[in-house]
Nucleic acid binder design. Sequence first.
DNA 1: CGTTGAATTGATACTGGTCAATTCTAGTGG
DNA 2: CCACTAGAATTGACCAGTATCAATTCAACG
Lengths: 238, 238
Amino acid sequence: VIALQEFAPPIRVPTPVFAAAGLESVRRIFVDQPVETLEANQLVFFEGDPARHVYQLVEGVVRLCRLMPDGRRAVIGFVFPTQMLGIPSHKSYPHSAEAVTGIRLRRSRRTQLDQLIAEDLTLTQKLLAMVCEELSAAQEQLLLLGRKTAQERLATFLIWLTEKLDHNGHPNEVVLPLTRQDIADHLGVTVETVSRTIKKLKQFGAISLPEPNRLIIEDWALLGRLAGDTDAPPAWAS
Amino acid sequence: VIALQEFAPPIRVPTPVFAAAGLESVRRIFVDQPVETLEANQLVFFEGDPARHVYQLVEGVVRLCRLMPDGRRAVIGFVFPTQMLGIPSHKSYPHSAEAVTGIRLRRSRRTQLDQLIAEDLTLTQKLLAMVCEELSAAQEQLLLLGRKTAQERLATFLIWLTEKLDHNGHPNEVVLPLTRQDIADHLGVTVETVSRTIKKLKQFGAISLPEPNRLIIEDWALLGRLAGDTDAPPAWAS
DNA sequence: CGTTGAATTGATACTGGTCAATTCTAGTGG
DNA sequence: CCACTAGAATTGACCAGTATCAATTCAACG
């Protein structure tokens, strides 16, 4: 599964704020593990595989997917550097993990993690906090998929993604590492709808895309209203 | 928020299997706490409220909801007896909790839970396992909401619910504690669609409903195929 | 019984999906 | 440096699955 190779544009993201104590514990899991490299679209692990490892992403972006037998795909989340891959406390992976861009990551044996959990309270607390955070994010996404329109989904997602990704000095501008298909499968719509909806957001003046993968948020407040999380959306926004 | 009152049909569910050690730890949180009673549709806590307590459900069913400012609602999950309410590790509740039926529950202060987490490794491990379980369930639901048709959603949900609820000796028969609106908001469709889709499932012979709230699963295999989690769905199932 | 909210049913509208064609973009090799 | 290619993205025409709106029907309860 692991390959060495130069790879796509190095995606950089800001380091999330971690409780210092917990961070140190998590680092302990992966310290001394060599950094492995995967190119875009390679598989880290597959849904249903026995969960023998956990990973920490060092660089790049990973998507987590669930598949239906007929090929329908849901991208249930994305993983950014410093975050862990491979949920603790499961015999098999409940989803696949694939490199969106070229990635670098560290690997650790589940048996070793289990041992650390068995003795290190601080680590276990930190893991609990991290999983709780992910659970909240998933629940937020349930609201999006269950009740938001395509336009609200896109607006919500673009805000979220822009806040996650690094800006290289330009606070309103990001290079999207994802394809339209990834976005579509994450938002529960089709690529065509993603395309058309992005066009509408452009026409509203909320965003602009000098090239298909360079996003500039022109009007945060407007985009926020279009996301539907606030009352009083602009009446003309249909 | 708390009221005493006799209440709706006592919903019974089978006790989930817990790791014995972990269960004991969890019980410690709530032991000696009085059992409180709420009637149907009363609020346990509200989205955004400071998270001062955690709860353990003793009897009945609770729904967890997220709301949009314009009133759209997503039921992000249901809670059954022995399960905990109120995610650890958050300053405010990220969702509301409402009694679906009359319920009985125990309450414990968050400060007390935090203290237990700070010293009891076994408890923290158990909580971690429980939250991981919930996360997997949420991700499953993301697939449902993102990629399944209304028919697949209903079939999936009815199987899941029937496995959760107690059968009183009739293995294929349950009394639904939920309204059509609860189901609709959980599956991301409207009440009308729930109604029509249930009718279709009846016509296929997968289920029957002698009364609107008494569900009998007539053909598990068929309902399973209609849920879409298997290949080779019946061709006539449109 | 009569009342009220839940559930069902029907008619119609519309969002977003499907299918097909075209354009764009980033590589690749001459 | 410039075609050529393959996959990604866009666009258009049309359609299907659900939503919406409105009207009954049903069931529980006083």
